[in-house]
């Protein structure tokens, strides 16, 4: 039996290419999580408020997105949709929409949980002072909910950052696809993917440290923000 020899020098050779892919990975994850926060806040508020039709629409959205694999959604958007509506999205657009919608669905549940964890008395006190529902939400409930939402939101960002690897399937040259191309050309999966894994780690480790720090701070009490 002849074992293939691992050539570690490839790890350094592919680094510049991988880093170019990293830029797209970060861009996609950041835009995705921002879209997710906007969608998630709106949908989360709708699900707390329980206005009938909107609530049902929001629930369908959350259940469909969370109940289907992201890869299936991505392939449907990119390869399938053009055959029905005749319009093809750019790979980045398709990936951005998929990640935004996904992040939005998960974030909406985080937001909903955060809002519902705030004592009802806070909303009542604000309303008793003459504030509208939205003023009470915005000035009183959301800022308090936000502190509780922040750590799970950080985790959501870490998950999203790793999930961007799925975008490789729509030809987007993010880090995973760059790695696959380099690997196919060199026939050396180990050094290439170890390098890619290291870059993912370098990005996610400080993030999870940050999340932990936030959790500790939150445990310290409600004083200030």
């Amino acid at each position: 039996m002849v074992l293939q020899v691992i050539k570690w020098s490839y790890a350094i050779k592919v680094l510049p290419n991988l880093l170019r892919g990293t830029v797209i990975t970060i861009k996609l994850a950041l835009l995705g999580v921002i879209a997710g926060i906007i969608i998630g806040t709106i949908v989360g508020l709708i699900r707390v408020n329980r206005t009938k039709i909107l609530y049902q629409l929001a629930t369908v959205y959350v259940e469909v997105i969370r109940g289907t694999p992201m890869l299936v959604q991505l392939v449907l958007f990119f390869y399938g949709l053009p055959q029905i509506i005749g319009y093809r999205m750019e790979p980045f657009t398709a990936a951005f929409i998929t990640f935004g919608l996904n992040s939005g669905a998960y974030t909406s549940e985080i937001v909903r949980g955060g809002i519902q964890s705030i004592d009802r008395g806070q909303m009542e006190a604000a309303r008793s002072l003459g504030m509208s529902y939205f003023q009470a939400m915005w000035y009183i409930v959301l800022p308090q909910a936000f502190r509780r939402i922040l750590p799970p939101l950080g985790n959501e960002f870490i998950i999203l950052l790793k999930d961007t690897a799925l975008a490789s399937t729509v030809t987007l040259q993010e880090m995973m696809r760059v790695g696959q191309i380099q690997m196919a050309r060199t026939g050396q999966p180990f050094p290439v993917y170890v390098m890619a894994a290291l870059i993912y780690l370098v990005m996610t480790l400080p993030l999870s440290q940050g999340v932990r720090w936030l959790e500790r701070r939150m445990g310290a009490g409600d004083q200030g923000l």
Binding site: Q122, E124, A125, I140
Partner: peptide, 15 residues
């Protein structure tokens, strides 16, 4: 706005 209310648990805004 014209009816002030004080709650049993006060419900001050902690933040």
């Amino acid at each position: 706005q014209e009816m002030g209310m004080v709650f049993q648990q006060f419900n001050l805004f902690p933040h």
